[in-house]
Design a protein around this nucleic acid. Sequence first.
DNA 1: CTGGCCATGTAATGCGTTACATGATTAG
DNA 2: CTAATCATGTAACGCATTACATGGCCAG
Lengths: 180, 180
Amino acid sequence: MSLKHSLLVLLAEQSSTGYELSQKYKEAIGFFWKASHQQIYKQLKELTADGWVTFEEQSQQGKPDKKKYQVTDSGFQELQRWLSSEIKPAKANDALLVMLYGGKHVEHQVLLQEIERHKGLHEKNLKKLEAIQGLYLSLSKAQQKEYRLPYLTLKRGLSSEKAWLQWAEEVIEELSDAAQ
Amino acid sequence: MSLKHSLLVLLAEQSSTGYELSQKYKEAIGFFWKASHQQIYKQLKELTADGWVTFEEQSQQGKPDKKKYQVTDSGFQELQRWLSSEIKPAKANDALLVMLYGGKHVEHQVLLQEIERHKGLHEKNLKKLEAIQGLYLSLSKAQQKEYRLPYLTLKRGLSSEKAWLQWAEEVIEELSDAAQ
DNA sequence: CTGGCCATGTAATGCGTTACATGATTAG
DNA sequence: CTAATCATGTAACGCATTACATGGCCAG
């Protein structure tokens, strides 16, 4: 399991509330790890029970209390243990490819449409990542050095989105040509 | 859910037993969809209850009976419906990138080792896919045309493994240079 | 006055993994 | 003798998704 560990990674970077964490799962690390707010709140509870994080409540008027979570010493140890362990390769369950694989049972037009739709989504993702890259490149050398590792993950995102789009071009050409 | 639909796709191609299907999840479509035999047997039961597949039992001496599954008319309709529906983009939960993102809490050497290990796995995958590509390219034009769509999914595998390896090269260089 | 953001959750259901179980045959 | 392949499953647990619930504040 690594949802817990991804939470530890984010909390080690900066103490946060559940809500703030769920934002990060959409932005900073969204392209390589997804988690809903429901999952996050549940796991934060378990992490607390494990003794790997603690929280301070900050009461707010009107709104419910904020809980600011932070990593404990034993949580930090656990994080280091995990970082030094063997990581399982990501499991890819890609329904779009299942569709293409079995695509002969529908018209090419149907496949094309769906691929075009996904292409739109991937283009949007790529733009987002490029924007983050722009921010990174505008930092000072010292700051760039600090964020070197997160930047490497960003590069993975850029590379994978670009490769996807290139492949999609090929597919679209192939399916359009070979009109059935 | 698409495990059921990926089963329908495979069964529409060819009637098979649960065991044969689990082999295909390791070979033919293994890089974009994974499923354990336990899951497969469970889903086959449900697919039968749904009326989307049926099976014929073939008794064998010594071994337990084989159940050869095939898609029913209503299963075929369901497949076509699914193929024409909106497919959710794949969800990426990639623990290796989480590790890299939070990698400053361990030594570079530890990160490098794990990335090298994954590089080995990806190289192996790439070779497998290239072997399948070799087979495809040795087919007659007519046969190539028949397997055009599965071939497009294979190309996705090739493209994505190559992009991964290229990225890994960059990462390894970066982490080796910036020795801490 | 509508929708989005802030902020936190519970409950039910569905999907996936791990462990366990059985038993024959074949290759090294 | 050991491990792999063929062949099928059950049970327990863990992880993820969907639906539901609450409620204030702010911008258009």
